[in-house]
């Protein structure tokens, strides 16, 4: 799956990242808000309630990650 995806991207570097799964982020694409907006991934007037929150130290990634779920 990843192999296929990367081959397609190699053939066409201008190809927009896929928006129907998490694959782009998994393979290192850092989404920018402007890109998400351009891809129509916007919801207007939303209300959110946080259900859980945790911070952890990801030694492999060499970074702290704060994760909220809500």
């Amino acid at each position: 799956m990843a192999d296929n995806y990367l081959r397609k991207r190699l053939e066409d570097p201008e190809l927009n990242p896929e928006t129907d799964s998490s694959i782009a982020a998994w393979l290192g694409h850092a989404w920018q808000l402007t890109e998400l907006k351009a891809a129509g991934l916007l919801q207007a007037d939303v209300e959110l309630l946080q259900l859980a929150f945790n911070s952890h130290d990801d030694v492999a990634r060499q970074e702290f990650i704060d994760t909220g779920r809500g």
Partner: peptide, 9 residues
Amino acid sequence: QIKELCVYP
């Protein structure tokens, strides 16, 4: 309360 929420793929 969020005016514009961006949802990632």
